[in-house]
């Protein structure tokens, strides 16, 4: 019950910020429409809707880091944190309370992205359901990045790191905007060492019904999600306690 009350508060705080909705849903959809328009005039295989929609879905999820990071950083910067720490919430209540409201938001974001993609020609079948499931580890990864950033940085810094740097990193290194083969081996190696391109490739494989290709990419994302989430929990507990002192 205590954790649910905290979860409900966090959900309301995030959803009532119009900037969150504009960036989290509006901006990726504008890009989806724009790149689809380019595809209509200058056909590029990368921008075919079956390739583009999973990429935009992952790009959209990167904004989840901004939501979670900003909420935690803002709580840290006000006395509301003291009130929370003085309450009988346990450490796991805090972690779950900050994480759980974002998961349904992430799933809803992906559903809206695929729904718009349907009107742009994406065929609807069971593979889209699979793609939604495949995107969950990526959603957890982005929530964890937000948890980590919010625990370490101020709200302004979170805006810069998660709102600008991370979203650009995801855009450039995920193979959504351009083919990574075109930009040289070093860039491609860096992209492959990070989880973003793997998240996109796993979702693309799911949408295409290429089930065998999902797992190797998904493994990268899951491994990153486990490591970053564990690190985020450690840093969150350590930093939040020291803030309250």
């Amino acid at each position: 019950m205590k954790m649910l009350a905290f979860t409900a508060r966090n959900r309301k705080e995030i959803l009532r910020d119009p900037l969150n909705l504009a960036f989290g849903i509006g901006f990726p959809l504008v890009l989806l429409l724009l790149l689809s328009a380019i595809q209509t005039n200058i056909p590029v295989s990368l921008f075919k809707i079956g390739n583009l929609a999973p990429g935009i879905a992952v790009f959209g999820l990167s904004f989840i880091s901004l939501f979670s990071g900003m909420l935690i950083a803002k709580d840290r910067s006000t006395s509301f944190l003291i009130r929370l720490f003085a309450s009988p919430l346990s450490a796991s209540d805090f972690i779950l309370g900050y994480t759980l409201p974002l998961l349904p938001m992430a799933v809803m974001q992906s559903i809206i992205c695929f729904l718009v993609a349907y009107f742009l020609g994406l065929s609807v079948n069971i593979n889209l359901l699979l793609a939604l499931l495949v995107l969950i580890p990526a959603a957890i990864l982005f929530i964890a990045i937000g948890l980590l950033a919010g625990s370490l940085l101020t709200d302004k810094q979170v805006g810069g790191v998660c709102g600008a740097l991370l979203t650009n990193l995801v855009a450039w290194l995920s193979g959504t905007w351009f083919d990574l083969n075109l930009v040289g081996s070093a860039f491609k190696a860096a992209a492959n060492a990070l989880p973003f391109v793997h998240a996109v490739e796993a979702a693309r494989a799911a949408v295409a019904g290429d089930y065998v290709s999902i797992f190797p990419h998904l493994l990268w994302v899951v491994a990153y999600a486990v490591v970053i989430f564990s690190l985020a929990i450690y840093v969150f507990n350590k930093k939040m306690r020291s803030d309250a002192r």
């Binding site: 508060r9 705080e13 910020d17 006000t78 006395s79 509301f80 003291i82 003085a86």
Partner: peptide, 14 residues
């Protein structure tokens, strides 16, 4: 126990 902290501690969007 409960605490009313030094600065105002409310959830702004609620």
């Amino acid at each position: 126990i409960n605490v009313s902290p030094q600065e105002t501690a409310v959830a702004p969007n609620l």
